[in-house]
Design a protein around this nucleic acid. Sequence first.
DNA 1: CGATTTATTGAAGAAACTCAACTCGAGTGG
DNA 2: CCACTCGAGTTGAGTTTCTTCAATAAATCG
Lengths: 251, 251
Amino acid sequence: MNTSHPLLAKFERSLTLTGAERDAINVLPVRLEVVKADQAILREGDRPKRSFLLVEGLACNSKVGPNGKRQILAFHLPEDMPDLASLYLDLRDSDTWAMTNCTLAFVSHRDLDRFCDEQRRLSKFLWRDTLINASVHREWTVNVGLREGLARMAHLFCELMLRMRALGRAKDGTCDLALTQADLAEATGLSQVHTNRVIQELRRLELISFARGQLTVHDWDGLVETADFRADYLHLPPVDRPESAPGARRA
Amino acid sequence: MNTSHPLLAKFERSLTLTGAERDAINVLPVRLEVVKADQAILREGDRPKRSFLLVEGLACNSKVGPNGKRQILAFHLPEDMPDLASLYLDLRDSDTWAMTNCTLAFVSHRDLDRFCDEQRRLSKFLWRDTLINASVHREWTVNVGLREGLARMAHLFCELMLRMRALGRAKDGTCDLALTQADLAEATGLSQVHTNRVIQELRRLELISFARGQLTVHDWDGLVETADFRADYLHLPPVDRPESAPGARRA
DNA sequence: CGATTTATTGAAGAAACTCAACTCGAGTGG
DNA sequence: CCACTCGAGTTGAGTTTCTTCAATAAATCG
């Protein structure tokens, strides 16, 4: 059981911390909470007094549209802070859902605000984190607005695989992703039926497997090509482990 | 000719500044530049060393998709800072275009970074500004992913009218918007032909007029309803002028 | 005024949607 | 251990929305 501060892992994945910075993080009071799968963590209209880091689990950000249908706007993986925005934007403008059982580390806005005043470098890193979020949103708009079904789904798989990989949670082109086809439909703006057909096509092309909450990329280059995927928008930290490509071609 | 600092107007629209804050802003070196209509201001892949405030004109943020088609991701009106993100996110992930002749006020990242360190309240306001940008991106994803053509276009008109209004640039439900139907098509992810038909339908329903770079809303409530529009996501400052609704019903 | 955008129209076709039924697999409880 | 249930995935068929192509009208600009 590791008792280190949940925020440490997040910062240390990208930064080399000074002693003072590390101390400031360790001193930041956090409160761990667990949310069951398919429960709302935050709702549109909420005015949270604290933000949280996703320690473990899979969450999503979504909005409900006219016909009652839901649009998923982002998936959140461990070390994400899906609600950092509420620190300086009182009113929540979308919902956040736990897709699996999630462990959350809450920090009060009061403490976080002071932390940002005192730890300028780390504050800028957090700001940057919210900017990357916005960049991902932009790419999703392109995805939904411009790409047809097959490319759209392929693009989503590319993003998820790379992000999981960056967290060290993908091995040999395989990672756990507890998503149903219905979830993928809501994320791509496609119907469930069409989502199913698109996934079948991706399988037929031998680009991926996706079943029982597990994604495997068989042909990374092929997937990237059908997705028109360029990873820049994710602003991922440079890969330090020399593990070559995310998945070998025709693995 | 007003010679006051371009950033002052932006801050003062939402905040009551202290003398020290006002001084800090006035001391911030800016450089005014003009960009002609249909010129790129920034490109994907750029690494700007300065950010800018849009002083006058209309700009947009966009990305080019697989088929060479362009998706517009946001429209930028005066007092916006379309590229504030580059302050803490080196690599530009989208293009910024001037849609009309634009006047830009550039501030170097070095100066802006120091400004943010020293002026904590104003720094948070700028951070908040980027968070609102992200919120708008989210709503656009919903727009493109969930709403059908008519509602999608109506939604865009609602947003633009409210934002122009918040700037005091709309009178009697009318505002100048130098956009072509092709621009609107790129912003909504619809084809030009379909965009044209959708706009005709909005006219037929007597909700709006849109011609020669001028938008008029004839029936705000009706437009809001067909758009499924809720303004929360814009996080607009509370309306101080008691000018009732943006446009009277069946004006 | 002629040239060049911008807007509009018609018609055929593609992509994706809805509805409805059916299969499959993983529990659960008798 | 088997029948049952329930969620997830799959299939077929008809329909809608939107696209593309191509041509025409109207507005704008030098």
